[in-house]
Amino acid sequence: MPDNNSLREIASQVRRDIIRMVNGAKSGHPGGSLGCADLLTALYFEIMDHDPENFDMDAPNQDVFILSNGHISPVFYSVLARNGYFPVKELATFRKLHSRLQGHPATMEKLPGVRVASGSLGQGLSFSIGVARAKTLNEDDKKVFCLMGDGELQEGQVWEALMHIGSKKVDNIIGIVDYNGKQIDGPTDEVMPLGNLKLKFEAFGWTVLEMNGNDMDDVVATLRHAKTLSGNGEPIMILMTTEMGMGVDFMMGTHKWHGAAPNDEQRDNALSQLEETLGDY
């Protein structure tokens, strides 16, 4: 098991991958990807029980991660590759013709690690209910983690799923909201204010934890805590505060890098701020 310093080193490499992938494709979503790099690194390298070398769609006796906000595919792909699900060099094919690394995650090209297509927002939590129910039917006590964007909570279907999970006590789900306060058109407070999410989730029957998604110590401790709490009658929601564009100074503090690719000069500037720890692909 890697210690938190090792996880921080992996996350740095993941951030380099994100910048290089999005630059290479000249499109993609770097902002949210950078913000969630610490979370996905912690989940895949420390928290989840899973088997990267032998990907099995059915995930028997494995924890499952569902990425509902599919546009942050760069961080998902990088972490899957760095974890051993598929060759790291394949990251270079991101968003290119005939690639298994589609712009948004998909299963049709059989990329190991992806269990459902996502991109059209608001659907991952519903899918997670099904996975969670299947695990219960199969007497499999592993967990289902589902990451959503905060802007994504504007989709009505999310609240259908939140209501179902909370009221029917589907307690093997751990939801995570990337609470960065930004979406394509601007701050969520301007586009469509989300209100008091903690109170809303609690009113829907969830136990709410809060964490700084860019502090590896907090991320690992909170995820461990969530896993311990899970299965005791109430689903767990983690409100994860992150900084969109985390790790690259000119991408932070703005929504402008939600879905824009850095040019070569910007790429080099970004990479100069991120340590190469595992070797670039």
Partner: peptide, 24 residues
């Protein structure tokens, strides 16, 4: 093996898709 989903068809379809993970 029966799931009452309430008047929430979108959630029902997603849940059904997820249930296939595990061979149902």
């Amino acid at each position: 093996r029966f799931f009452q989903m309430g008047i929430a068809e979108a959630n029902m379809i997603g849940t059904a898709a997820g249930l296939t993970i595990g061979g149902h």
